[in-house]
Design a protein around this nucleic acid. Structure first.
Lengths: 217, 217
DNA sequence: CATTGATGTTAGCACGATTAACATTTTGGG
DNA sequence: CCCAAAATGTTAATCGTGCTAACATCAATG
């Protein structure tokens, strides 16, 4: 009853809007966006097929809300994972990658929703590498960015190296995740193997990076 | 009239089957699988909506043919790209990555068809890293595999290092491509930047790899 | 030259998105 | 407290699309 929470609720259904979002979230997590129908969500919540249109302009709007919810959920896991390690440590970076892989591996359809090419795809904001306000709403890449800046700083390197470091490392992690959900390579199916690869490759990359940079400058 | 080519043709339409495949290919390349409808393909070819069912069990079968056609097209480009450089060279590997990125960047919807998560997705075969017969039908990863084995050999390293080398490198390239088509990071939108990153990261990775391996063994 | 099988076509069903018209409940002002 | 308006919901109908059934054609073969 915190005076904000009540305002939207208590109508016919109670709160059809958020009920639909959560129903849709579950359905999409279960079967994927492509298989998701407004009817299924309506049925699950117990309203008619037309009811959602009082709260969402169209199917896409609902899916968009689910996407936002997914991003927040994902971000929370990433934050939690890196928080277990010292700021600026190699471990923090690896843990971030591992959390990234796990989330997407275990919740493939949510991964596909966020990063796949589908009819509801929307251009991700975040023009360059800026971090927008709330970390929970931050684009996942932002977390890598923060961890890498901290690492660079711990290595006595300035943030000017960020891009050359972040892009290959993050695209590798992202690529592993995408390969996983697209089933592109069965060899990556084992979580142990994929996480071992992640760790080894990250270490090699970071260490090779230092040598390369130090050797030049 | 080579005795094979005529057999399938000259019926009502001539060769509706391949005409449909090519029409579908164009439509999918243009608008993506999700937006593709059998009706659109039928219209383009000039037949009724039911006609395709004489040649394909269902929509998925047609899409499957388009997928195969796409893979062959893609493979050809990869082969051509690496063929321009000495076998076993770093350049060949970079060229392969560049061709991979270009194809998928320039033909996003085909990339999404091959590697995206969609209703027609099918498990890619190729259980481990085996190379099946015809190189043109080979899974794209196979080309990387060949190039890397050659490179390893040129470095006097055996193929036992393949996996640890191929997975991170390929997933990075693949990740860059996926990021590109999902619009995940606008910063990767410029072809120059992305290709520069590819080259630099590949070089760093390969060189770091050698040092790492030589340092240990 | 007619039958047969490969192809095509039209009509129709099922489903899911979306909208229009109608019903009901909540809220707010008199 | 009562009513009108706004907010929600429902039912019915339309449209686009996959897919099937019943019917129409054409080419080839005996």
């Amino acid at each position: 009853m915190t005076n904000q929470e009540v305002s939207k609720k208590n109508y016919h259904h109670g709160d059809l809007r958020t009920a639909l979002i959560h129903a849709a979230f579950e359905l999409i997590e279960e079967k994927g966006v492509d298989a998701f129908s407004l009817k299924a969500a309506s049925d699950l919540v117990g309203v008619s097929v037309a009811a959602p249109y009082r709260h969402f302009g169209d199917k896409e709007s609902l899916v968009h809300e689910v996407l936002e919810l997914t991003k927040v959920t994902f971000s929370r896991q990433l934050i939690a994972a890196s928080a277990e390690h010292p700021v600026g440590s190699e471990e923090a970076i690896i843990a971030l990658g591992r959390a990234y892989l796990r989330f997407i591996s275990e919740r493939q359809h949510l991964g596909a929703l966020m990063f796949g090419v589908h009819e509801f795809q929307q251009p991700h904001e975040l023009p360059n590498y800026e971090c927008e306000g709330d970390p929970e709403n931050a684009y996942p890449f932002t977390h890598f960015r923060e961890a890498l800046i901290a690492w660079l700083s711990a290595q006595q390197l300035g943030p000017e190296y960020l891009i050359d470091l972040a892009i290959p490392l993050w695209t590798m992690v992202h690529g592993m995740a995408m390969v996983k959900i697209s089933g592109a390579i069965n060899a990556l199916s084992s979580p142990e193997l994929i996480e071992g690869q992640l760790k080894q490759a990250t270490q090699r990359f970071l260490r090779g990076f230092i040598e390369d940079v130090q050797g030049v400058s």
